[in-house]
Design a binder for these strands. Structure first.
Lengths: 125, 125
DNA sequence: CAAGTATTTAAAAAATTTTTGAAATATTTA
DNA sequence: TAAATATTTCAAAAATTTTTTAAATACTTG
């Protein structure tokens, strides 16, 4: 009949474990929604190798856009697009120096770059 | 004239810093290409809030697909799509239990989830 | 073995992201 | 002030990712 919700069944072996933790609904309710959103946002900002490369380069040395575009091998506008994403994500910031814009890591950007090594599968423990 | 490469100019203030580090070319050459590729890959796998949510849920409790799809509120096939991405990224693995597939974090997956808190801007130091 | 359940796969459609190329800005220099 | 330089912005095109729907698998149970 229409509108009948089919009850879903958790396999026995798993249900035991779930009950020990206060039930499925509770596990769901206790997920840290804000943290999840933030993590996904940062991950998304860095989901492109060129943007990650920019971050690595800036970790070593602040640079103007004409340098950064050499680093990733791209046009100005492409580089600018990536930089604006990184900026919107709060990872880099820029200041004008004459005709140039000098980009560098924000404290937040630095704190993240610091943990990059965690993302090498070699680290599997 | 055609084919003339325009030499790019690094602003004075920056060039001093760059020379101290052995020059621009060297900075570029020493970027850890493999690490950059790996970082971007992991970030890319987790660039979606639903996938991050799955990881958080699995950190707490191994689950079958019918549970995970409730967690993220989606259809089977959508959930399956995300799971296959996570699997391809080496973050989760699955084992059959009768009619069910039970998903859980790989050691690599666990090692990464462990560092999620780093990705909250509140952590800015 | 037929029917039911859980899940995956495949293909097409929809949505999002990235790239490109041209034009707009702002600053410096002649 | 005109010309040159560095960079951004915008809109269209191209590429990629995600969603949807339907069909295919594989296991379990009657």
């Amino acid at each position: 009949m229409a509108g009948v919700k089919k009850r879903f069944v958790i396999p026995e072996e798993i249900r035991v474990e779930v009950e020990e933790k206060g039930g499925f609904e509770r596990i769901i309710k206790e997920l840290p929604r804000d943290e999840i959103r933030m993590v996904a946002k940062v991950m998304n900002t860095l989901s492109d190798p060129q943007r990650v490369k920019i971050l690595y380069a800036l970790k070593r040395q602040r640079m103007c856009v004409c340098m950064l575009r050499k680093v990733i091998g791209s046009s100005y506008s492409r580089c600018s697009y990536h930089l604006s994403k990184l900026k919107k994500g709060g990872l880099v910031h820029s200041e004008r120096l004459g005709n140039y814009f000098i980009y560098s890591l924000t404290p937040f950007g630095k704190s993240i770059v610091k943990h990059f090594k965690k993302y090498r599968p070699e680290v599997r423990t």
